[in-house]
Amino acid sequence: MKLKRRQRQRLGRVAGYVAFAAIILVAAFAADWGQLHDAFFRWDIATSMFPDAVTVALRNTVIYTLLAFVFGLVLGLILALMRRSSVAPYRWFARAYIELFRGLPALLVLFMVGYGIPIAFPNREIPGGVYGSVTIGLGVTAAAYMAETIRAGIQAVPKGQWEAARSLGMSHTRAMVSIVLPQAFRIVIPPLTNEIILLTKDTSLAYVLGVTAGTIELTKFAGDALNTKVNPTPLVVAGLLYLAITLPLSQLVRWFERRAERAA
């Protein structure tokens, strides 16, 4: 029997739906729902984690994220400007820094900051304790990524904006600060918001610096609860709390992007 092209396409699509539904159904039937519920969705265990899950763990996660972001943003901006400098050694340094920290795992950098610096400078302490260490440890890596993002944003500002600013008698620095950077930052708001999402998740690495009851963040908090309750429900609670931050942020990114498309 010969099928027409349209009919063959329709048949292929229906077969795809059926296979997809079948896989979902098999997975649903294969799962032991009772056991799953006892493992991951124990209401009593979930409620026992509050309010500390929010007032301590989530709060610290947000604090670590914001501190690392601000630190990384400032350092990233400096690196981006150095990358475009007319002074060659500045360019080389920024280039080397960016390549280095984009190539290293964030966990390794955290170890370096948390354990390497105290050994290298035995009589000094990183200000802010664990907060300071996490800020620097996550911030130096984030700065490398943000530097490249900001540099791309600066380059995306049309050359005519520079020429107009300079023609009005503005110095290079004044034109950069008053005219180019404000427009560059509008361009890079979506990718920078993505960077906050990535940092939020990377704060889960902070546990390696030996966080205490006061400085604990979501992942370590959930891990401890997992050990004491011998039940994985805390992991689900932590996951939902992460999503409570990251999902609105990614919605925000999409909103920024739509707005940018409309403006263009």
Binding site: P158, G160, Q161, E163, A164, A165, I179, Q183
Partner: peptide, 8 residues
Amino acid sequence: FQQFNLFG
């Protein structure tokens, strides 16, 4: 300028 180059 030809392209105006107002600060957007």
